[in-house]
């Protein structure tokens, strides 16, 4: 399977990353065969696509440890954009981070980033590198506060909001994580994976914090279920969305009202609670869809091969658990 280097897929798996980085020498070789000077003016290969390809190659090369190709690509980027370019500075930092082996070297990198930011506080790529380095060093609190500062300057940065949400989630600060994910959704309202992620956070926080308050519990579960619904409405074959619908159901089912009329007071909830029959029908739909996804992706049918292996295994296991509880 070949990967488009200009628009690579999100969440590149280690295998794909290796495939990409193995193409690096070939791409580097083909681009070095340019015409001599006066003729080279007649062939404009200085396209944005070319440099995007280089950037993607660079990241994959660093990931797979192909430092030689990464160095070559970085040199090309340096020659083209100079060492004052913000993105190039960030890539140089990445290269140095990849080669930093000891704690001291990482701390030295942090200090360098700090100096660069002091001379130019608007350098967002470097700021993000510093946060990423702090996260990987385990200094989550510092990373969170710096990310907060970054988002005060640039509150429309969905990537930064998502990262902050993950950091908060790792610290079990569920309300903050929810808030950040809502901000992500405000920037990109149709990102179904973000809807599903928000549903997951809401579900886990509800289970963790309000299991002794039945009203809050019910509301959180209903909210989570509806978020999952939204994510599969946006992407009709989204595995995580259906998986979530199935996971939410057992805790929601015993408390769901029988009919619309005896839903608890809507005042403390944004929406009335879903009825028992709705929950059941959604569960049927999710089961059917999950079964279809697992079957077709296992058979490797055309158009169904993009699913993550671990996710389909988990879905199969969830379905098996169902059949066992019915048969026993």
């Amino acid at each position: 399977m070949s990967v488009d280097l200009v628009y690579p897929p999100p969440n590149i798996s280690p295998k794909t990353a290796l495939q990409i980085s193995q193409r690096a020498p070939q791409v580097l070789k083909s681009s070095s065969q340019t015409l001599p000077f006066p003729l080279s003016l007649l062939s404009g290969d200085d396209t944005p696509e070319k440099w995007t390809t280089y950037e993607n190659l660079f990241v994959s090369c660093l990931r797979t440890g192909d430092d030689k190709s990464a160095r070559q690509i970085l040199d090309k980027l340096l020659r083209r954009f100079g060492d004052k370019n913000e993105r190039v500075m960030a890539y140089q930092g990445m290269m140095a981070e990849a080669n930093a082996e000891t704690e001291q070297e990482a701390i030295k990198m942090l200090r360098e980033y700090g100096e660069e930011l002091e001379s130019d506080p608007t350098n967002l790529p470097i700021q993000k590198r510093r946060i990423a380095l702090l996260t990987s060093m385990g200094k989550i609190q510092e990373a969170i506060s710096m990310l907060g500062d970054l988002l005060v300057i640039s509150p429309t940065d969905a990537e930064a909001w998502a990262e902050l949400s993950d950091l908060y989630f790792g610290q079990s600060l569920y309300d903050q994580a929810t808030f950040c994910l809502e901000e992500v959704l405000l920037v990109m309202p149709n990102a179904w994976n973000m809807h599903a992620r928000l549903a997951e956070v809401i579900y886990l926080s509800t289970i963790a914090t309000s299991s002794d308050k039945p009203g809050d519990l019910l509301r959180g579960l209903a909210e989570s279920m509806r978020r999952y619904c939204r994510s599969v409405e946006l992407c009709n074959n989204y595995l995580r969305g259906y998986y979530g619908l199935k996971v939410v159901r057992p805790s929601l089912l015993p408390k769901a009202p029988k009919s619309e009329k005896n839903t608890p007071d809507a005042a403390y909830s944004d929406l009335p609670l879903p009825t028992l029959s709705t929950v059941e029908r959604l569960h049927e739909l999710a089961t059917a869809k999950l079964g279809e996804i697992v079957r077709k992706s296992a058979a490797g049918e055309k158009g169904w091969e993009g699913y993550d292996g671990a996710e389909t295994i988990a879905a199969r296991e969830l379905l098996d658990r169902d059949t066992k509880s019915i048969s026993s």
């Binding site: 130019d120 506080p121 608007t122 005060v152 300057i153 640039s154 509150p155 429309t156 940065d157 809502e182 959704l185 405000l186 920037v187 309202p189």
Partner: peptide
């Protein structure tokens, strides 16, 4: 290069625009 304050000003305004256009998702 824009100054830090200018970036913040512009993006804060954009945040309002985003909230207005995508209010229904939250």
């Amino acid at each position: 290069k824009q100054t830090l304050g200018k970036i913040r000003e512009h993006r804060s305004l954009m945040r309002g625009v985003h909230l207005r256009t995508n209010a229904n998702v939250i």
